[in-house]
Design a protein around this nucleic acid. Structure first.
Lengths: 336, 336
DNA sequence: CTGTTAGCGCGTTCAC
DNA sequence: GTGAACGCGCTAACAG
């Protein structure tokens, strides 16, 4: 038994297909009598309109694309979850474009802007180039950025400058003056992630505001892994005048710092304070003081923005989400 | 400038739309001359066929649905990633149905089997009821289960009985005779997860094979959280005759056990051996001995199975993936 | 080999 | 208020 079509319903109800379509779409111009006739016919046939036919006719795909490097890190999943929360209750489906390489990212953008696959695009973390933005505009497909900014596109970002400031400031407030920073590679980040530069900026600002001079040797950059962070921390801690506190760009890296301290026999937080960034799941277990981002919320807000923009296009909006300091047991006054 | 249609291409190339369609679909019955004419026209117009129109005409949606409780635990993300690996290179899109409650799961199944939304369904972890299976069969939509089994549906499962056996056996081989097991709730698992029963069975089998009597008081069940596991472990370890080793249903719970041991001043692995299950990211950092599942591969194999089944439907297949023992530093001979 | 035509299922004028 | 006809862009079957 093939699925019933709108024609079957029309026939069964003794009306035209136009009328059926009208009751389906809440058009008011239908008499109560015929409306109920149609509705019972629909019920009897267990009829559901075909989404694909609907899309073709409407010229809208009713799906929104989410493009992101989801599987690199858990935080993307959390953002995606926020997106899901919003979209699940909408009439939109969403399809995921997982992008783990620059090549694939380009292919993805190219594809999307040419084909009519999505009604809107949610771009997580991967800042589009000006050219890509232009192409999206021209193809007239609404887009919003989550965790990334662009003057011509609506975006919701986390205030990473403030987050970096907050972390550093916390250390300063505890009395630290010698504060190391271990970050992701500032230059070579594959997609040019903004947060890398922003958190660093926050670190610098906090130092400056407190009248603490920035020391080049206290800033180490490396690939985003625990192992590498551990190596970097070891360098920092074996300096002639080592820092008494270390701020790590991510919790993962903070764990590397913890490991290095352990290897050197340094007690945390008595002899070394450590603060991370992200508040991933395991951080609570390890009592890591860290900066929490409102990841789920950022996904939600992004999806809401996009939905709104699909309805009425407007000027680019900007939403900035704050960060929270999560106080646990890896930070304390120096030499306590 | 609206996107070019097949008609525009036909006109520009001076041929009929049928011919254009033929070169698009690799039909061999086209002369080299006209084919190249068409291809240049396509290139000049930057033409891409409309997926939606194609779908309507074909009667296929070219998308496959993936339904799973993704965001509850990281392991789902890993499976999903495997799915993505396979589907990204296919012509299928995939859309995710995130299911976190039984109600939503039912709604999801209902929806999918009625509407023509997907060409195939990948169901992760959520075993469908017989009625749901029947409905899928009737709606003629291919489905495969990942991390779940059903006699009438192709599935790829991880051999959790063997995994539970492997974990327990490892402890026995080290010389332990008093082995506790902390598991998820056997009865009340919301969706009736199979792994819960299977790992328990593996535990029992290993015990039996080694001639060790099962002791009820050594088996504790509780909700899947570190906190609860910690509480349970505390109970176990304060028994008059406490176990010398504990097998935990998940790494998360194993961390709870570790915490309990720490609180009681028990040295791991000298005074207590602990083995987990999953090998989540942080486990390596914490040196947890555990059982690793081939999660990504299970997603891949599932997607491959589904794709194959969409092409030629056949009898249900079964793929069983082994588990690996990952030896680290939380297990040792008793009293070592 | 290739042009033409009839659907795919629905939304939407346009007359009645 | 309501039915009939047309079009969305493409594929497939049928002539030629």
């Amino acid at each position: 038994m093939a699925n019933a079509t709108i024609r079957d319903v029309a026939k069964k109800a003794g009306v035209g297909v136009g009328t059926v379509s009208r009751v389906l779409n809440q058009s008011t111009a239908v008499s109560a009598a015929t409306r109920s006739k149609v509705q019972t016919a629909i019920a009897e046939l267990d009829y559901t309109p075909s989404p694909i036919a609907r899309r073709l006719s409407l010229g809208r795909t009713m799906t929104i694309g989410v493009i992101a490097p989801f599987f690199i890190r858990p935080s993307y999943v959390e953002r995606l979850r926020g997106v899901d929360v919003v979209l699940a209750d909408s009439e939109y489906d969403f399809i995921i474009y997982n992008v783990e390489t620059v090549a694939r990212r380009d292919a993805c953008f190219h594809d999307i802007s040419r084909q009519e696959r999505v009604d809107g695009l949610l771009i997580i973390t991967l800042p589009p180039t000006d050219e890509e933005v232009a192409r999206l505009k021209q193809a007239n497909i609404p887009a919003v950025l989550v965790d990334g900014g662009h003057p011509q596109i609506s975006h919701v970002m986390i205030d990473d400058v403030a987050g970096g400031y907050q972390a550093t400031r916390h250390l300063i407030d505890l009395g630290h003056r010698k504060i190391g920073y271990i970050s992701d590679l500032l230059q070579e980040s594959p997609f040019g992630f903004r947060p890398v530069a922003d958190r660093y900026q926050g670190y610098r600002n906090a130092l400056a505001d407190a009248g603490i001079e920035f020391r080049t040797e206290y800033h180490r950059q490396g690939e985003l892994s625990r192992r590498e962070a551990s190596r970097l921390a070891h360098e920092l801690l074996t300096l002639p005048d080592p820092p008494t506190a270390i701020f790590a760009y991510s919790d993962t890296q903070a764990f590397g710092v913890l490991r290095a301290a352990q290897n050197l026999g340094l007690k945390v937080p008595e002899q070394l304070s450590v603060i991370g960034y992200d508040d991933i799941e395991i951080s609570e277990f390890l009592h890591l003081t860290t900066i929490r981002q409102h990841l789920l919320e950022s996904g939600q807000r992004g999806a809401e923005l996009l939905l709104a923009e699909i309805i009425h296009p407007g000027p680019p909006q900007e939403i900035i989400l704050p960060t929270d300091l999560v106080l646990r047991s890896t930070t304390a006054p120096p030499g306590s």
